[in-house]
């Protein structure tokens, strides 16, 4: 069953008078439980593609349908709400809230969703345990290593029980060991909890772990391989 249907998606920038087709007519289905890597060289349109799928950047044309809902037909307020309840984000630069502890960063999303305190606390502990840093629950991001911060970011992305997680080059700022750890965690969550992961990357280690690899170049799908 497709969790995401992408139909004829375009993103064209023409701010400087020169038309740049960052995403150039992509059609794609992502099934539930996929562990998919979007790969391609820098500037190939990976991040733009993820932003369009994640409801962050408005496409010039085309549709992104998640569970039957055309994401870009939603009004601004509904769209934010849609992201909150359906999509988990992991960013390259972790982007945790610096004034909150690891636990609070994870809890924050659930609070936005209106969870009760007890449920929030329980899930926060579960998620941080799952990513292996429950012992750092009270540490602020500045006190965590890059790998630990990214694990908190993964826990935060999963906190809202999203339909899928979009990770934009999640290992770009991590050393080999942290990358391995993070990939193992994401793979385990994908395998055991059927969480759909879509990540952009040009990291060979990530590509190796992915079960589906979609290669994008000049905004178009060049290859779509399932292992």
């Amino acid at each position: 069953m497709s969790v995401i249907e992408i139909k004829n998606l375009y993103k064209i920038y023409d701010g400087t008078g020169i038309e740049v087709k960052a995403v150039n007519g992509i059609d794609l289905n992502i099934e539930e439980g996929e562990f998919t890597a979007i790969v391609g060289p820098s500037g190939s349109g990976k991040t733009t593609f993820l932003n369009l799928v994640g409801g962050l950047d408005r496409p010039t044309d085309g549709q992104v349908i998640v569970d039957g809902i055309d994401v870009w037909s939603l009004r601004s307020r509904k769209l934010i709400d849609f992201r909150l309840h359906n999509i988990g984000f992991v960013f390259q630069a972790y982007n945790l809230i610096p004034v909150l502890t690891a636990g609070e960063n994870v809890e924050f999303i659930m609070q936005l969703q209106g969870w009760s305190k007890n449920d929030r606390m329980k899930r926060t502990h579960d998620l941080l345990r799952a990513v292996g840093i429950e012992d750092r629950i009270d540490s602020r991001p500045a006190k965590l290593s890059g790998g630990q911060q990214q694990r908190v970011a993964v826990a935060r992305a999963l906190a809202s029980k999203p339909k899928f997680v979009l990770a934009d080059e999640p290992t770009a700022n991590l050393d080999s060991k942290s990358t391995e750890n993070l990939l193992d965690i994401m793979e385990k969550l994908n395998r055991e909890e059927k969480i759909t992961f879509i990540f952009s990357t040009h990291d060979a280690r990530v590509i190796k772990k992915a079960r589906r690899v979609i290669t994008i170049e000049d905004g178009k799908i060049l290859k779509d391989e399932t292992k």
Binding site: G54, L56, S76, R77, I80, D81, R83, L84, H85, F89, F91, N95, I97, I109, L112, Q113, R156, S160
Partner: peptide, 9 residues
């Protein structure tokens, strides 16, 4: 980032 993860305006 806060807007992206679902914090409304």
């Amino acid at each position: 980032m806060l807007m992206a993860i679902g914090m409304n305006k």
